[in-house]
Simulated assay, not measured.
Amino acid sequence: MSWAGLAPGNNQSAGKKKSAKITRAGAYIKPMLVQAAHAAVKCTGQPYCKVKYENIARRRGKKRAIIAIA
């Protein structure tokens, strides 16, 4: 996930979190994984991804939720 640019950063010092944004790497593979995540969320046969997406989206927002699923 780090190579694809979907892993959050881990910048900590003295127990304080500084930044947790995803990186800008993976210009070609990241959009494909996000598109696959959108398809998985819309799938009705296996509701696991849809339920997980809805739970995260309710708390964190839709964009962060789709990155978490990807």
Rank of each mutant, 00 (worst) to 15 (best):
Y48H: 06
Y48F: 05
L6Y: 11
T44Y: 01
A27Y: 03
Q12L: 11
I22N: 04
L6T: 07
N10I: 02
K50T: 11
A14S: 14
N10F: 00
N11D: 15
P31E: 04
K30E: 09
V51W: 14
A40T: 04
N11Q: 15
G5S: 11
N10L: 09
K16Y: 10
K18C: 09
T44N: 14
M32T: 10
Q12M: 10
A36L: 00
G15V: 05
G45H: 00
P47S: 01
N10G: 01
H38K: 13
M32E: 13
Y28V: 12
I22S: 08
G15H: 13
K42V: 01
K21V: 11
V41E: 07
P8M: 03
A40V: 04
K30V: 05
P47R: 02
K52G: 04
P47C: 01
V41N: 06
N11L: 13
Y28M: 07
P8V: 02
R24G: 13
A14N: 14
G5F: 00
G45S: 06
V41L: 03
E54I: 04
S13L: 03
V41A: 03
P31K: 00
V51N: 14
E54S: 13
V51S: 12
T23S: 15
A25D: 08
L33F: 02
L33E: 08
A7Y: 10
A37W: 00
K17D: 14
S19Y: 13
T44I: 08
Q35L: 08
L33P: 06
V41Q: 06
K52C: 11
K17F: 12
G5I: 03
L33D: 02
T23F: 10
